[in-house]
């Protein structure tokens, strides 16, 4: 099977689809036209820029460059997670940074070093796309679980205080809120795991097949990616919510309601 290649003209034709979306929004009075238009321009600009940037990065290919790119990606993801919160949470920037770094170490350690085994080990062609997937998913899980954790604690304030007043440790008193926050944030990922291959063909696999890779080979990659994606999601939910809990309860086992 040959490699399908697109010209910029071909890509521009995809704008017809966006025109349909904008027309439908206008017809039904959804008020999304402006957001769709701005989003389209941003997506074109950002992806084109990153395409050229990756081309240069892949040519230079040095471990220090890898480190620098990962730090920038981590910083942007941590900033974005703070921006997505409904309330200002203490240390969320650092909590997200620590959580995503851990997720990166685990995923790159297993998937890159033990499974894909790139040569040289810091090959940016392998590590940058993998890191992007881990950080993108991790950021979503951290944001969803942190937001849900806060609203669960507020909702359960009375039972949290009863549990604490009965000498329960904070981790035990807050466990129902913790459980709902983390499991709620993971539901979309787990649903995706259940239906993968039946309802949807994931992006990595679709992209590789369109780029000419035999389907069975593409499936192997997709399975590895799904395992990495889910595991790092669980790690991010558990670690970020646990770290947040330590910021919301002081050493005297008192909930910092003033922060919520």
């Amino acid at each position: 099977m040959g490699l399908f290649q697109l010209s910029f003209g071909d890509v521009a034709i995809s704008l017809v689809l966006m025109a349909v979306a904008i027309a439908l929004s206008r017809l039904e009075g959804l008020g999304l036209e402006r957001s769709l238009a701005i989003g389209t321009v941003r997506a074109f600009a950002q992806l084109t820029l990153i395409g050229f940037a990756l081309k240069i990065l892949f040519q230079v290919n040095s471990p220090w460059l890898l480190l620098a790119v990962l730090i920038v990606m981590l910083a942007v993801a941590s900033y974005e997670s703070v921006r997505r919160q409904q309330v200002t949470l203490p240390s969320l920037f650092f909590i997200t940074g620590i959580t995503l770094s851990l997720a990166l170490v685990v995923s790159l350690g297993v998937v890159a070093v033990m499974i894909i085994r790139p040569d040289p080990w810091y090959n940016l062609v392998v590590l940058i796309p993998l890191s992007g997937m881990v950080l993108g998913n991790g950021l979503n899980i951290v944001s969803l679980s942190a937001n849900r954790f806060i609203s669960e604690i507020q909702l359960r304030r009375e039972s949290v205080e009863v549990a604490l007043s009965l000498a329960a440790p904070p981790r035990k008193a807050l466990h129902p809120a913790f459980k709902n926050a983390v499991s709620g944030a993971l539901i979309p990922s787990i649903n995706a795991l259940m239906t993968v291959g039946l309802v949807q063909l994931p992006g990595v696999m679709t992209g590789q097949i369109l780029a000419g890779m035999p389907p069975v080979e593409a499936v192997k990659f997709q399975i590895v990616i799904m395992m990495m994606w889910i595991t790092t999601g669980v790690i991010c939910g558990v670690v970020a919510t646990s770290l947040l809990m330590t910021r919301l309860v002081n050493a005297r086992w008192q909930v910092r309601w003033d922060l919520l």
């Binding site: 009375e158 039972s159 009863v162």
Partner: peptide
């Protein structure tokens, strides 16, 4: 020191 709250709440 045990506290009983104004409104019943359960664990």
């Amino acid at each position: 020191i045990s506290l009983m709250f104004q409104t019943p709440a359960f664990v």
